[in-house]
Design a protein around this nucleic acid. Structure first.
Length: 701
DNA sequence: TTAAGCTTTCTTTTT
DNA sequence: GAAAGCTTAA
């Protein structure tokens, strides 16, 4: 009788997990919410990050942690919406762990796409030196495609280049047909859809012929490359261990598809997307936060995290921000939890009209400065650029230095584009748009002659070379001298010495190429513009390759923002900015001006489906930029487009707020005694006897 | 066909 | 403040 064998339990001895030691003290430098994201395990992950919750910080630490845990930087793909954001993040990671991460595939969707497309361009019918068309280039090419097809634009109204570009762009980015885009954005042109489609087709052909891609092509061609060439996609999948996407709420359908494609061949699908649905403000460019809301469905097993602790603003500001966004139906529920102590109330100020608004803001800014707040800690935000005009005048009058972050960007100005057209043509001789732009600068040469010349040379492998050899005797007499000079300039620019020095090439075009003469006749402020061009040359100085310089210029935007001419870091300047451009930034004191119904929310934007909700998100973005003080200003009268002074109602974003969320300021006229004392300005306060603009004061509520 | 001069218009615009 | 659109002149 044998004893029954005792049950066996297997027990595995494990080597003590070595306490992982990191160079960065993650536990100390992050809060609980952030730490969880930073240490989130492999697999698809979504992070909903409220305003001011340390979203960038969390991403930076996540990247650091991945690198510290052994992921080589070149195996990371970090997609952002601005190059500035990408640069900022890589810089901060490097500062944190003291390691070079420049090998990472980091940048905007467009710049990463351009980088990936160049080596494989031949697979798509392009040459690796393809040009990149900016919005204006596309517009011109579309207009020329329209006239190509002899569409009788005069008989029946036909969409202009700008609208065509917008429609095309929306259809590409939303993954919809052109017909759907026309139906939703410009239904009155629906009857001409066949012609519009023909123009689109022609435009597409012309781009390939010109060896040029517009912004949308960068994305859609990358999509094609990844879909049609699995070997390319798989090689990329092997290379990329983690994809991280910032501002995912502003991603469009096409961009979301690209992210999905990058993850497709990876078994673990290490995709982390970070965003805030309440800050989605780019639907007019095709952004759709459906990508964010629907992410969990596309990635089963996704982990979701939320960052709701706000480090930026006072509780007063956050309460107002939360109350406002709660009026939106379509959103993720979330509440911003303040960490800061009580501050001053949010101020709501009605001014008699727009000039008084400017006067009030300028005066308050001077007071804040006297209280010790640096001008660089103050910003004035507005819905539309033109709303800043009066303020600009008032600030200039009072000698308050400011910097404008809206309106035309440096590289989009005519004179800059004119000169760059020469360089583009030297790099890519098939670039039709640049050829026409450059040749039209000559006296007596307009659209007609430019088109004739291009037609004569465009079939050639090197149209510029053919153009240089063309017999000019048949050209109109008046244009002949100019054409000769033009050919001289082009010949010179094709020399290797200029190909390796964009700065010299720019100076050559301006000085020897005669552009300074052109500028003098073309622009009333030619001196300033020529100074700009010298600044452009300075900016180009570090580059030793014209092609590379051009790509960065078209894709990287504004040099005035940062790393331009060193030493002019003048931080004693107030910032004026559109709300869109203020996203991601913060100031101690923020003035939000022009809060009248129909201006903000913008009447036109409200006509779009969900337009009002997007406007409210824009309002949310604006108010959450403020750290300490928020002032909301609404003029009670403004000039309408016919130049008549009309009464304007306060914005519904103000009227819908409960009255206990802000303090109402009423402006008083200056005391009659005229004195020259420094503070000889109207007193401000909660006077219960408004003496200004008697007919105003509809209660905000 | 080009150019000059006037009027009109301006939502936002990471690429 | 700047660019686009329109009309008229050359």
């Amino acid at each position: 009788m044998a004893d029954p064998a005792p049950p066996v339990k297997r027990y595995v001895l494990r080597t003590a997990a070595p306490a992982r030691s990191y160079r960065v003290d993650y536990a100390r430098e992050l809060n609980e919410e952030q730490r969880e994201v930073v240490f989130a395990p492999e697999g698809p992950t979504i992070v909903i990050a409220g305003a001011g919750s340390g979203k960038t910080r969390t991403l930076v630490y996540r990247v650091s942690r991945l690198v510290e845990d052994g992921t080589p930087p070149q195996r990371l793909c970090l997609l952002t919406f601005t190059n500035r954001a990408a640069r900022e993040m890589t810089r901060r990671v490097e500062a944190l762990i003291g390691e070079d991460v420049s090998g990472a595939l980091a940048g905007t969707f467009h710049s990463v796409a351009a980088r990936l497309l160049r080596p494989s361009a031949e697979l798509l019918g392009y040459r690796p030196n393809f040009s990149i068309l900016d919005g204006e280039d596309s517009k011109e090419l579309l207009e020329s495609a329209t006239s190509d097809l002899n569409i009788p634009v005069a008989e029946r109204r036909f969409p202009k280049g700008d609208l065509l570009r917008e429609l095309l762009s929306l259809s590409v980015n939303r993954g919809r047909s052109l017909g759907e885009a026309v139906a939703s954005e410009a239904p009155h042109f629906l009857s001409q859809l066949p012609a519009i489609e023909a123009v689109a087709k022609r435009y597409g052909e012309r781009k390939v012929r010109a060896n040029a891609m517009d912004y949308d092509d960068l994305l859609s061609n990358l999509k094609r490359l990844l879909e049609e060439h699995p070997e390319v996609r798989q090689a990329l999948a092997r290379r990329i261990a983690h994809v991280l996407v910032d501002e995912y709420q502003d991603v469009n359908h096409l961009q979301a598809q690209l992210v999905d494609l990058l993850a497709r061949d990876s078994p673990v699908r290490n995709v982390m997307v970070v965003g805030d649905d309440a800050q989605s403000i780019y639907s007019f460019r095709g952004a759709d936060f459906e990508a964010l809301l629907g992410f969990p469905d596309r990635y089963p097993g996704v982990r979701m995290y939320r960052l709701e602790t706000n480090y930026r603003s006072t509780p007063e500001i956050l309460r107002l921000a939360d109350a406002s966004i709660a009026f939106n139906a379509r959103r993720f529920e979330k509440t911003l939890r303040p960490t800061r102590g009580a501050g001053v109330p949010v101020a709501v100020v009605g001014t008699a009209d727009v000039p008084q608004q400017a006067q009030f803001v300028a005066q308050r800014i001077l007071e804040l400065r006297d209280e010790g707040l640096a001008l660089s800690e103050i910003a004035v935000l507005y819905r539309a650029h033109y709303q800043s005009l009066e303020l600009q005048m008032e600030l200039t009058r009072r000698g308050i230095p400011f910097e404008i972050r809206s309106g035309l960007r440096f590289f989009e100005q005519q004179h800059v584009k004119d000169v760059l057209a020469f360089l583009k043509l030297a790099v890519n001789p098939k670039d039709e748009t640049s050829f026409k732009r450059a040749i039209k600068l000559l006296p007596k040469v307009g659209e007609r002659i430019a088109a004739t010349f291009w037609l004569a040379v465009s079939e050639a492998a090197d149209p510029v070379e053919t153009f240089l050899a063309l017999d000019l005797s048949k050209a109109p007499a008046g244009a002949r001298a100019g054409l000769k000079g033009f050919r001289g300039t082009l010949t010179a620019l094709r020399k290797a010495s200029y190909a390796s020095s964009p700065a010299e090439a720019i100076r050559f075009v301006v000085e020897d190429g005669g552009y300074s003469e052109v500028a003098k006749t073309k622009f009333p402020n030619s001196t300033a513009r020529l100074d700009d061009l010298e600044a452009l040359a300075q900016f180009a100085l570090p580059y030793d390759d014209v092609g590379k310089f051009l790509q960065e210029v078209t894709l990287f935007g504004d040099p005035a923002g940062e790393d331009t001419v060193a030493g002019e870091k003048d931080d004693e300047r107030l910032v004026l900015s559109s709300v869109h451009q203020a996203k991601g930034l913060e100031w101690r004191a923020v003035f939000l001006v022009g809060l009248s119904e129909d201006r903000f929310p913008n009447a036109r934007a409200c006509r779009a489906p969900e337009g009002l909700e997007e406007e409210r998100r824009l309002f949310h973005v604006a108010v959450t930029r403020a750290k300490d003080e928020l002032t909301l200003v609404h003029p009670l009268a403004a000039y309408d487009r016919t130049g008549i002074l009309v009464m304007t109602e306060p914005s519904r974003f103000l009227r819908e707020l409960p009255g206990d969320l802000y303090e109402r300021w009423v402006l008083e006229a200056p005391p009659p005694a005229p004195s020259l004392s420094g503070s000889g300005a109207p007193a401000l306060g909660e006077a219960d006897d408004p003496t200004l603009s008697g007919e105003d004061d509809e209660p905000v509520n």
